[in-house]
């Protein structure tokens, strides 16, 4: 009785060992870290890049710029980093974690205030007052969009305790809280309100005096420098620039330096 059971067990073990051996390595893989606001746009860019380079595999990790900064300084194996600000790439550059002359501005992000369930025709300031009881922002300590939102609120009121803020991990999560209905209003990136064709419903205000300059860098630990440079050249091409603009960003001047 015991014998067949143990043989099955043994076979199972062999199967497991065979199964555990690592998957075959793909030819060329580019790993990109992106600030979460740019994730959906980057997916479109990657799709278009794939048409030119079908054999290349591209992995994307998204998060707040601050949390990605921590991962990169801890040795995360990313090739490119699309930040939502200038400070973070600059800091990495200062630490020698960036390949020389690869830091440049790829887009200007736009901070937006969104209240999907409200169509009142009033100014943003009144709108924010109206919803001061529960507003969501991205974590200002690690997310540039959250920081910009916080600065804006400080301009509106010296009393920092006045607004009850729900703090999301990053700007995509902030958007998700509003969209899911758990928070009525808050600050997101304008590009998120343009997803799936048209503009999202409800009250939208864009703060164009509060543009977020967003920079990209090629990280010095990259093992796919050629491919990474090719991708950087690609995102400066006319086709790519149109994708970025259509996704709700403003563009830097044409004619990059990479």
């Amino acid at each position: 009785m015991a014998f067949p059971t143990s043989r099955i067990g043994l076979n199972f073990l062999f199967l497991l060992i065979a199964f555990c051996s690592s998957p075959p390595a793909t030819a060329k893989t580019l790993t990109i870290a992106t600030a979460s606001n740019f994730h959906s746009t980057l997916l479109k860019l990657v799709e278009s890049f794939h048409k030119l380079n079908p054999s290349v595999r591209i992995n994307i990790s998204s998060g707040s710029s601050g949390s990605l900064y921590t991962r990169i300084s801890m040795g995360a194996p990313y090739d490119l980093f699309f930040s939502a600000d200038v400070d973070t790439p600059k800091r990495l550059d200062g630490q020698g974690l960036v390949k020389k002359n690869t830091r440049f501005t790829y887009a200007y992000g736009r901070l937006a205030f969104w209240a999907p369930g409200d169509n009142a025709k009033i100014s943003v300031r009144e709108m924010i007052e109206k919803h001061q009881g529960k507003l969501v922002i991205a974590n200002p300590k690690i997310a540039p969009y959250g920081k910009a939102a916080e600065q804006l609120l400080k301009l509106y009121s010296k009393d920092s305790k006045k607004y009850q803020l729900v703090v999301a991990e990053n700007v995509v999560q902030a958007h998700q809280y509003i969209k899911g209905g758990s928070v009525v209003a808050g600050f997101v990136s304008y590009s998120q309100l343009l997803l799936r064709g048209g503009q999202a419903r409800g009250y939208i205000a864009v703060f164009d005096d509060k543009q977020l300059e967003q920079q990209v860098v090629l990280l010095s630990r990259s093992r796919e420098v050629e491919l990474a440079l090719e991708f950087l050249r690609f995102i400066q091409s006319d086709g790519a620039r149109k994708i970025i603009e259509d996704s709700g960003y403003r563009l830097p001047k044409a004619g990059g330096d990479v």
Binding site: P23, T29, R57, N59, S61, S62, G63, R71, A76, P77
Partner: peptide
């Protein structure tokens, strides 16, 4: 893990 597809995701 750092959410890397194919490695740690």
């Amino acid at each position: 893990g750092g959410n890397i597809p194919g490695e740690t995701q």
